[in-house]
Design a protein around this nucleic acid. Structure first.
Lengths: 247, 247
DNA sequence: TTTTATTTGTCCGTATGTATA
DNA sequence: GTATACATACGGACAAATAAA
């Protein structure tokens, strides 16, 4: 909140619009820690004065930040930096319900759809099955405090876990579903992370704007004997979470 | 690289543009194994001749493939099929040169710029310093086989590691730079992963198209006493790597 | 080591069809 | 209907990087 801010209205900057410059400036300030979670931004009028622009221009910048979840405005009170993204630990004992519930949030897992498929080579290899084996696919939308966090497609052996879909629908938890089939404990054996751009389907499911980034996490969970029990591809709204490795 | 190619300019094909037909054709050839990772495509002029189109049309097709990470062009040399994503393990002993070198690739680390800054609260906290302490920021472009992999901004204490920039420039390795200051061993104490969309600066530095996804990795390395020595924010071209957790 | 040919990158231009205001 | 903007496609010229002679 000093230095570079007041320079933004100087001379031609690039071909960038005024509101975008202001938004970029605040994003930088937030990302570098000049503003931290919970901090109140200066009032719209004060920002407008500092940049020498109309208050509506500031509002456009704030709207852009709010859309991405960086800040949220409260009428009569001010605009506040959103407390950071939900920390999502990924390690040997990654369990969605514990992660979200443990952080004091309300965990949700809604079964969107399910199907019986023939395992493609990739899925078969991860589950230690022959290619073409029957597998059950569960499409789950996970949320925290009613806000969608990720869409997870999970595959389990249809032979080992017949009716997995109806079990999940009743239990609303992967941990409890696995327990129903006698798997009392499991651990994460493989985790791979990459990123992608959300398409229209992602946008609709996760309630975000198309073009926003996703974290794509491929994982395999194994039982206490080291046998694979479930493999999952999760698509996280990157704006809403941070993966925390190895805790 | 035969058969269907020469038919592309035949009659109405669908409502599909010329360049897209050519791109689709090469995508198919790559996916079916006609071209494999590392293979060189025919020159733009040769492709243009074969399809009976202008070289610019071929360039448009190649640009589309390059944007998706399927191929990459090198001026004066040719256009090459990209081999799959580089597996990038992140764990307690994450060292870029070992990861990339160990996979049989040529590791590169070029110091783009450096500066002395006052630590913003976030950086200070990670390094265990008082906010406003002098820190040295090193901006490094890391690459594998001449292909940019990530841009890393690292911060170290200016008091503990004066002249870190010139040391890094000589050693071309963070591990060796830390060793120069008596830090013989270090380990990863914190790793956080999120995703973002590459802006124009990222695009230029990493030689990718604006709008492509990035993996943003924040990390802290500590010495054998548990004292923080360096914190880094790396921006990886997500199309080119997969983070492998905990191996 | 120097030269030369090849190959991609970037710029100039022209023309045409299509969707939009 | 008209004007504007945009994407497509073509043609040419030269610069810059590379590899081979």
């Amino acid at each position: 909140m000093r230095g570079t801010h007041e320079q933004a209205d100087q001379a031609p900057y690039r071909g960038v619009t005024l509101w975008r410059r202001i938004a970029d400036d605040f994003e930088q300030a937030i990302s570098t820690g000049t503003f931290r979670g919970g901090d109140r931004l200066p009032s719209e009028a004060e920002i407008a004065g500092r940049f020498g622009v109309n208050r509506h221009t500031v509002r456009r910048a704030i709207a852009a930040l709010a859309e991405r979840g960086l800040v949220h405005s409260e009428r009569g009170s001010g605009t506040f930096v959103s407390s950071g993204r939900l920390a999502y630990p990924i390690g040997a004992r990654t369990r969605f319900s514990e992660i979200v519930g443990g952080a004091g949030h309300e965990a949700g897992g809604r079964l969107l759809s399910h199907a019986i498929e023939e395992a493609v080579p990739d899925i078969a290899e991860r589950l230690g099955l022959a290619p073409g084996s029957a597998v059950i696919r569960l499409d789950v939308l996970r949320s925290a405090d009613r806000i969608p966090i990720c869409h997870a497609a999970s595959w389990v052996s249809a032979e080992r876990m017949a009716n997995a879909a109806s079990v999940y629908r009743a239990k609303r938890s992967m941990t409890k579903t696995l327990a129903h089939y006698g798997i009392r404990d499991y651990r994460r054996a493989m985790t791979r992370v990459t990123a992608a751009i959300g398409d229209a389907v992602d946008a609709e499911r996760l309630r975000l704007s198309p073009g926003r980034p996703l974290l794509v996490v491929d994982s395999v969970d194994v039982d206490s004997h080291g046998e694979p029990v479930v493999t999952t591809r999760s698509r996280f709204a990157a704006d809403r979470i941070t993966l925390v490795v190895g805790t």
